[in-house]
Amino acid sequence: MAGGGTTLEYTPTWVVALVCSVIVSISFGVERLLHRAGKHFRKNDQKQLFRGITKDQRR
């Protein structure tokens, strides 16, 4: 970093924990969104969209 900002060594533990918690929360939210989108796509028979958000590459 230019300017000699604070390093992780001097960052308070609660700040590190907060940032990690935010990242984990966003990850869970995105996973939940993809799960609900997949259920919606299967329910409405939109196979191509469902296949696009899953690893299923079968034709």
Rank of each mutant, 00 (worst) to 15 (best):
E31V: 03
I26T: 13
T11D: 11
T11N: 11
L33P: 00
C20R: 08
K43Y: 13
E9A: 15
T7N: 09
I23H: 01
A17V: 03
Q46G: 01
H40M: 14
K47I: 14
Q48H: 10
T13I: 08
T6L: 12
R36E: 09
F41E: 04
K39P: 00
D45T: 03
T13S: 13
L33Q: 09
V30W: 07
L8A: 06
S27R: 06
K43V: 06
F28N: 11
Q48G: 05
F41A: 10
G29H: 03
T13D: 14
D45L: 04
F28H: 10
A37N: 03
Q46R: 13
E9T: 12
L33M: 13
E9H: 13
F41N: 04
S25H: 01
A17W: 04
G5W: 09
W14L: 06
S25V: 02
Q46V: 03
L33K: 09
R42F: 01
E31F: 09
T13N: 11
C20M: 13
T11R: 15
E31A: 11
V16L: 14
T7G: 10
K43T: 11
C20A: 15
H35M: 03
G38P: 02
I23G: 00
E31K: 09
R42S: 10
L18G: 04
R42H: 06
T6P: 09
G5V: 07
L18Y: 10
H40I: 14
S25M: 07
S21N: 03
G38N: 02
V16Q: 07
D45H: 08
F41I: 03
V22L: 15
V22N: 06
E9Y: 13
A37D: 02
F28D: 09
V19P: 01
T11E: 15
V15I: 10
K39L: 12
E31S: 12
G5R: 12
T6F: 09
R36T: 03
V24N: 06
V22A: 14
H35I: 01
R36K: 10
G38D: 02
K39V: 08
S27G: 11
H40A: 15
V24R: 06
G29E: 01
V30Y: 08
W14G: 01
R32Y: 07
L18M: 09
H40E: 14
V16M: 08
G29Q: 02
V16G: 01
G29Y: 01
R32L: 09
N44D: 08
L34M: 12
A37M: 14
L33D: 05
W14Q: 10
T13C: 07
T11Y: 11
E9R: 15
G29V: 01
K43A: 15
L8H: 01
I26K: 13
G38V: 02
T13G: 04
H35C: 01
R36P: 00
S27E: 11
W14A: 09
R36F: 10
